[in-house]
Design a protein around this nucleic acid. Structure first.
Lengths: 178, 178
DNA sequence: GTCTATACACCGATAGAC
DNA sequence: GTCTATCGGTGTATAGAC
């Protein structure tokens, strides 16, 4: 797995080859089939590993979440966009599913579901229960991360808009409840 | 080109092969090299063709744009997301650049630049001149399109949030100018 | 000029020897 | 469990027929 991530970061997620992974661990490519069923099974394991790591990190964020809604959304957004820019390859695999022919298995998808469930559970007591509210927030934060990575990887032209975006979103919620 | 789009829509953008394109037009694969320099040159031509079509469509949208800012942004957003959901393969090639090793040439990139320039020129007289305002709008609308396509292709769970998103964004602009 | 035929290096994957 | 040998398929390249 370490070798797979290494190759993915160096050459691109879609460009990993079994021969290159095998080379790095002193093996021949066909020998990998003793441990994994296919190349897609490697992507599946990477998908599960990435989401498990994300779930671990987000649980630490949730451990000391502020009480107010704006601060809570800000903490989630900062962590999500921070993860995406820190680990663009993992973000690509987890959220943009662009690998030809790869569909995550139920097992490796489970931690992703857990993250979303926990997210909803922490938002509810702070006043967000409607699915549309969560959906708009997800699109807004995801749009910032994706636009940043696509147009200016390594920069902050879009990530610095996060505070404004949160503020805009929270005021929208307040106006709608008025 | 028609055959290339056909294969891309049927099997996926990254899955097109020269042999399959050639088959559809009654040719052998190597004969394609008489007309194009490489497979990436085909992607490049597709990229240019897609952005040219988008520019044509958007120029018709701009031909009868309302005077107010909210209506204008709504027209742009509706068209962008409509195009993305109507032509997901073109959207992928144009805006998510996930094809291994493909970088658009300056020529094929030109219509994309023209679209953004015209966009800015139509926003300025309606009160939007700051780059941050344009950036946030782009991220917001792009996030809605991408989230819709990634999580529920063919549905409207996110696209129906467009009116609310525009309203939220315009009220943010008004509040900031107050 | 445009095509066919053929070849090369690489890919994921499988069979079978040890 | 790891290896070698090999398969069909891929992008790419070139020689040569018409």
């Amino acid at each position: 797995m370490d070798a797979a991530w290494e190759v993915a970061r160096e050459r691109g997620l879609a460009e990993i080859t079994l021969r290159e992974i095998a080379d790095r661990i002193g093996m021949r490519a066909p020998s990998l089939y003793t441990h994994v069923a296919s190349k897609n099974a490697i992507y599946d394991a990477m998908f599960g590993e990435a989401w498990t790591q994300y779930a671990d990190e987000v649980s630490r964020v949730e451990a000391d979440l502020p009480q107010d809604l704006a601060g809570t959304l800000r903490a989630y957004a900062d962590h999500f966009v921070g993860f995406a820019t820190r680990e663009p390859v993992k973000h690509l695999l987890m959220n943009q599913r662009t690998i030809p022919g790869f569909e995550p298995s139920a097992d490796s998808y489970a931690p992703a579901v857990a993250v979303m469930t926990s997210f909803a559970e922490h938002l509810a007591p702070r006043g967000i229960t409607a699915q549309e509210d969560v959906d708009l927030f997800v699109a807004l934060v995801g749009g910032i991360a994706d636009t940043q990575l696509a147009n200016e990887p390594g920069g902050d032209r879009w990530t610095r808009l996060i505070p404004r975006a949160i503020d805009m979103f929270v005021r929208d919620l307040e106006d709608r409840n008025r």
